[in-house]
Design a protein around this nucleic acid. Structure first.
Lengths: 149, 149
DNA sequence: ATTGTTGCAAAGTGTTTGCACAAAC
DNA sequence: GTTTGTGCAAACACTTTGCAACAAT
């Protein structure tokens, strides 16, 4: 029993790898490392955070590759790019049953996820009302987190 | 009767100028031009759009000054800086009675304002529920506008 | 062997900062 | 006359692109 390195892979990583092969991508080491790291995340990471974490824990991946891979994953719809008003983008795995939004602390930059059914309902009902083909939405609440308050 | 240049100034510009004096700012030409331009806007402009419009219509203002002025106005709470996921910030006058959010076209970049009471209610109720001092919120719906669809 | 993938360095874009001069008080 | 405001250019931070080497098929 020697498989020490690989942690169990969740549904997201499995589905993502499947989508990647379907879309004709080859299995590259850098992409595998990014997918594996994202798979462990429940919330959004910035490209720099991904770079640092990969350098420490899995396998160093060049910054350009990280951005390229994240863009591919975003286009495939398996990753969501979110802009939380911090001057940088964040990326998180899309798990259809774990849709959520973010609280951002204006002091320390902490990002906290939350979800809310009435909010989703309100957004859905707006989507039907406007002369606009709504494909997605992003909701950011900002203020001070419990620690900074 | 020679006053050809000055258009009528709305409540927002009046209130903003008042806030500026209260806060100890002097009356500078660049800031006056930015305030006057924003005063005419109902929706958000980027720093570059502001620069271009000022160069054409009112009085050219250096880019650095524009950013500095917008930051001051944002800190005074009379301007809102909104990040719509377009890789640049946008700025709009804060009119308490005209709170709104944005639809962003992913194809042409168009920004359209909308408001919705149930949505605001949902956000307000979340604010009370979370362990976080919510100070503001930003809601962006993205997709395709009527023209691009 | 072919074609996609990766890393490096360079270029790009939006924003901020340092500093000297001009303007407001 | 002192202090703040402004413009320019340089510096910055994040992201994208060009290209040569590498790996997957």
């Amino acid at each position: 029993m020697a498989k020490t390195k690989k942690k169990k892979e969740s549904e997201w990583a499995t589905a993502t790898n499947e989508r990647l092969s379907e879309a004709g991508f080859r299995r590259g080491g850098a992409r595998a490392a990014v997918v594996s790291l994202l798979d462990e995340q429940s919330c959004a990471l910035s490209a720099y955070e991904i770079e640092d974490l990969l350098a420490q824990r899995e396998r160093a991946v060049g910054r350009a590759s990280i951005y390229r891979i994240l863009e591919e994953l975003d286009e495939l719809g398996v990753v969501a790019k979110v802009e939380l008003g911090q001057g940088q983008a964040r990326y998180e795995p899309v798990r259809p049953d774990h849709h959520h939004h973010h609280l951002v602390c204006d002091k320390c930059g902490a990002v906290i996820a939350f979800d809310d059914a009435p909010l989703e309902r309100a957004v859905h009902s707006i989507s039907k009302r406007v002369d606009f083909a709504v494909e997605g939405h992003e909701i950011v609440l900002h203020g001070l987190c419990a620690d900074c308050r």
